[in-house]
Amino acid sequence: MPKHLSLLKIVLSVLMAALLAVSLARGAKAEPTAQPVDALIEALRMPEIVDVLANEGRAMIDDLDRDDDGIPRSAWVNMLADLYRSDVMLEAFRVEMAKALDGVDVAPIVTFFETDLGRTIAQVELDARIAMGDEGMEDVAAQAWAELPADSPRALLIEDYVAANDLVEMNVVGAMNADYAYMIGLGQTGDAEAMPSDEDILREIWSYEPEVRADVSEWIYSYSTLAYESLSDDEFAQYIAFSKSAEGSKLNYALFATFDAVYSDLSRALGAGTGQLMQVFSGQEL
């Protein structure tokens, strides 16, 4: 099992943490209830973010433990290309987001992100998300966070922001759910009797929870340091106040709920696809 296959390069801030995945099992189509969410999707720059995540997903071939299993690289490339399609990912997000925000008036949320500050926030988060795809920049951001005095105004704001949105805990839970879904998908294509039980899968996943938590925490704080560097302390404080508001809390919940739903689907499909490749090309027992 590839540890944290779903993790480091997809963990995001409150606006990014919920993005995104392919809901292949559902084959979901947008419903009328999704329409009020369209303006929010645009305001949060979701189409551009989805492109980033789709590219990262397709590039995940370099992170897979392929060893000498006899599976051609082209087979992995084709499978990831099928899973990480920007158009399908965006549609899955739109449908799940509409479900998560059902009954919620999204107008005040959209209004915030259509202000000058809101537009700036959406832009700097997108820019930082792209930048963090480079290991060198990720190291720079991590160093910047490490060098911030713990009692400095900026460090305290970042701590407040992370706590207000429960970013570490929610991302750890989402990562664990995705890894569990991957193992379930993998088991769907193998000998059921040879697969570990649910209890064994959960025991293995939770055995490396401290490592996952440490990785997630480092990414979140590094990303936040980089993303909001250009904001003044007052602007950052305004954003945190929004996050703590009723509207901000509903958005945060909806984004994490969306992430959990669609990324579990994607991870399950990835596990099933991996199992199929192992069977077709190498006859390995799962």
Score class of each variant (00 low, 15 high):
177 N>H: 13
232 S>E: 10
61 I>H: 09
118 G>L: 03
265 D>G: 02
244 K>Y: 00
9 K>T: 04
277 L>G: 01
204 E>G: 05
26 R>T: 05
113 F>M: 04
154 R>V: 12
164 A>Q: 06
186 L>C: 11
163 A>Y: 02
203 R>F: 12
103 G>L: 13
89 M>R: 03
39 A>V: 06
203 R>T: 15
55 N>G: 07
132 M>Y: 07
186 L>H: 14
164 A>Y: 02
177 N>S: 09
169 E>Q: 15
201 I>Y: 12
154 R>W: 12
77 V>W: 02
141 A>M: 10
54 A>T: 13
225 T>F: 07
24 L>E: 11
52 V>C: 04
33 T>C: 07
258 T>W: 05
36 P>M: 08
51 D>G: 15
258 T>F: 03
280 V>M: 12
239 Y>K: 00
269 A>D: 13
11 V>Q: 12
240 I>Q: 05
83 L>K: 03
213 R>H: 01
90 L>V: 04
159 E>G: 11
143 Q>Y: 05
100 A>H: 03
113 F>E: 14
279 Q>F: 03
81 A>V: 02
81 A>P: 01
59 A>Y: 06
235 E>Y: 03
153 P>F: 01
223 Y>E: 03
257 A>L: 13
128 A>S: 05
286 L>A: 06
232 S>Y: 10
137 M>V: 10
237 A>V: 02
264 S>R: 10
215 D>Y: 01
123 Q>G: 02
